[in-house]
Design a protein around this nucleic acid. Structure first.
Lengths: 153, 153
DNA sequence: CAGCATCCCATAAGATACTG
DNA sequence: CAGTATCTTATGGGATGCTG
């Protein structure tokens, strides 16, 4: 449970502001039930998803609302190279976020589309995104506010 | 509005499953009000936060529940190098997620602590984390399920 | 103690050329 | 069309040594 938020020991200092306790208790309960392996896999998925291109590709597919061919993606995902687009699509496919369909015609046609998991993930990330945008002005060292803490060991 | 989820044109194919429409409408409304600059800055913040170490460091600080010295962080953030810890801490500080306090003693003492923004961000990410862990088994190409779509142009 | 400076390497990403 | 192959460059990160 490396990344989870719950304190491991009751002997440690914890935040005592009621606000904090209220907000975090749910998540804490959840974290305590998460295994190291689950935590690690979730970490990987987050890291991959938040990389340079994946979210953008998922968004383009969502925005299109229909399967897109490789070349259409190249046009719409501005700035990506062919190699990186291919790589990223393969990763997204492996993670079950998109589906790749090859139509064995001449010339070949390949279509990529969002899976329902891909759409759901995008929704979840969008929620986080929204929170960040709403707090954009606070992400600034000059506005940093300390958290009140008291020892309770 | 590069990454937002809303379709730009009403003439495009959109998902018509009621489920989809219901779930996404809120986020769509929000996305339409997001400027390119906001979107870009949020993107940067997400990318930085989801990098290798930041979440782990924030978690360790949250878990400790009190300010930690540099050397305590080195111990608790297993596997990180001194250089990268320093770098990451500086970035977290610039983004207003932690506060660095230097006590000009001999030998010098430096303490790092979470800001309320840092704690809040951690909570938001934990929510996403939780969703991912609950759907861990679905992140698999073999379980991919297409999204139903209909043209509405 | 808490770092900065330096060197080194592994990986990510970009550019270009070629192909089933 | 939708890639693959290859080369080069940029970046992240690790290891080591030094210092106010």
């Amino acid at each position: 449970m490396i990344y989870c938020i719950r304190s491991k020991e009751g002997t440690q200092t914890i935040y005592t502001h009621p606000e904090v306790t209220d907000l975090t208790s749910d998540i804490f309960d959840f974290c305590s039930s998460m295994t190291d392996e689950q935590d690690g896999r979730a970490r990987e998925l987050i890291e991959r998803a938040a990389a340079k291109w994946p979210l953008r590709i998922l968004h383009v597919l969502s925005d299109a609302g229909a399967p897109l061919r490789f070349s259409r993606l190249m046009e719409r995902v501005e700035g990506i190279s062919q190699k990186v687009l291919t790589q990223t699509l393969r990763t997204l496919e492996r993670d079950g976020l998109i589906i790749r369909t090859l139509y064995p015609e001449v010339p070949p046609r390949v279509e990529y589309e969002l899976t329902s998991l891909g759409r759901d993930l995008l929704m979840q990330v969008a929620t986080l995104w929204r929170w960040i945008v709403e707090h954009l002005d606070d992400f600034d060292a000059r506005k940093a506010v300390k958290l009140m803490a008291t020892a309770n060991a």
